[in-house]
Simulated assay, not measured.
Amino acid sequence: MSYRNCAFGLICRKFKPHLLMVIVQIAVTFLYFLLVASFDNGMNPHVFVTYRHALGGIVVLPFAYVLERNLRPRMTVAMFLELFLLSLIGVGLNINMYFASLKYTSASFVTSMVNTVSSLTFIIAVALRLETVEVKNPRGQAKIFGTLLSLIGALTMTLYKGHAIPSLHGSPIHIRGHSVHNNWIKGSILAIAGCISWSLSYIMQAVTVKKYPAQLSLTVWLNFMGAAESAVFTVLTQHKSAWSISSNIQLWCILYSGVVSCALVMFTQIWVIEQKGPVFVTMFNPLGTILVAIMAYFVLGEQLHMGSLLGGVIVIIGLYLLLWGKEGDQDLLKSQQQSSLTHDEQKESRTQAMASAEQEVHNGT
């Protein structure tokens, strides 16, 4: 029994990042519908971003201060400017444009567009020479073809609406307001721009977390800086009346988003990026698309369009072609690292691995 418990523990540790990302997608799914309801009640998306990131920073601050007191690296001017730029791209630009696009389109459309982040991240990484592509290799061809498919799917969702699938009149909740779904062209442009900045932020996070390995403290910095940047933009562009919270749904949306999305989800994603890389995080976006589409249709009675469904399917196919090609990179890297070891080093590595496994079994007993 102890050996089985030990084996179960090893499996849980191996798939811990997978489980955490599934939980993240479930948590974000609920946020989308709180947002749609809040925007329908007149909440300003830029004010929302300011409040939620300020609250997220406040929630994580005491944990970061206590748990990472001896782990935080010294803050330099260069690191401060790097964090400022990362928060500007990942919060100030990305989140503001992303939530504004949700106000003008729909939850199903916006979550479908998020699936293009993996392809955009891949394109930017190739342009920056952070990613290599072997055109003659099948996995390299899968990367290229998958990227093209994802972009075609995104264009399909943006430019083609198609036949409308009627909403369910018997759904429990109906959201129909003048502030939602009233400008698809503007919302599409904002969604595309938000996805581009999102891709850039993932690449920057992967670089920054290596220089600043204190994930909790990094979460605090990004939240507070993002809130400050969003506040400046809001003060310059919005009327002061936009800062008021006029309903309970707006209050609950800010609390849920601040505690769950900006504190727990952001910290989890930073940890998973450090463990598995930025592309691994984006591969779970299709799960969020499916969950949102199902809940939007059956719970909210949201109308679906064939263009969104067709484009979403194309994007998901392209995404997993890209991920299949990326998986080959990991296998190639492991084989290259293994082949670079001498015979004695390989023997010592195998001995250490066996000793570690025996120690874990012994601890389990």
Rank of each mutant, 00 (worst) to 15 (best):
S171G: 14
L333P: 05
G177M: 07
L264N: 04
K276N: 10
R13M: 10
L71R: 15
H18M: 01
F122Q: 00
G311Q: 04
A263G: 09
L85D: 05
L85N: 13
L322S: 11
S241E: 12
I196D: 06
V235C: 14
G226I: 00
S167Q: 11
L55T: 06
G162T: 06
V117M: 08
E134H: 15
I290A: 15
Q275I: 00
W184F: 09
L222Q: 14
I123W: 01
Y160I: 02
A231D: 01
N363Y: 12
G307T: 02
L35S: 14
V260C: 13
N285Y: 07
L86F: 09
S2G: 15
F109Y: 15
M266F: 07
F284N: 03
L319P: 04
G162V: 02
A214D: 02
M1H: 14
S150H: 04
L218S: 10
H46T: 07
A263I: 00
V232K: 14
V299R: 08
F109K: 05
G318S: 02
Q275T: 02
R13G: 15
A64H: 12
H18C: 03
A357D: 02
I245D: 08
S101K: 06
S150M: 08
A263F: 08
I89Y: 09
S339H: 15
L151Q: 03
V279Y: 10
A7K: 05
I249Y: 09
A353K: 13
A107I: 02
N70G: 11
S118Y: 08
V259F: 15
L310E: 02
V232N: 12
G57I: 00
K334W: 12
G328C: 08
S171V: 00
T365L: 10
M283I: 03
Q337C: 14
S217I: 00
Y65V: 03
A353R: 12
S38I: 01
E345L: 03
W271C: 06
L341V: 01
A164H: 13
E302G: 13
L148E: 00
H46C: 05
T158K: 09
L20T: 13
I58G: 14
Q25E: 15
G325W: 03
F122L: 05
L20P: 11
N285A: 11
L19V: 12
I152R: 06
E82Y: 14
F99Y: 10
I173T: 13
I294N: 13
T76A: 04
V272E: 02
P62W: 11
L19R: 08
I165P: 15
Q338N: 11
Y3A: 14
F48G: 03
S246R: 13
G56W: 09
S217N: 09
G177D: 09
G56Y: 10
I144V: 14
Q303E: 09
G328S: 09
L86E: 05
A293D: 02
T116C: 09
F84S: 15
S106M: 04
Q215E: 04
V292I: 07
N44P: 10
Y3G: 11
T158H: 08
L151G: 06
M283F: 10
A125Y: 01
L71P: 01
Q275Y: 04
C195I: 01
N70Y: 10
I152M: 12
G57F: 07
L85W: 13
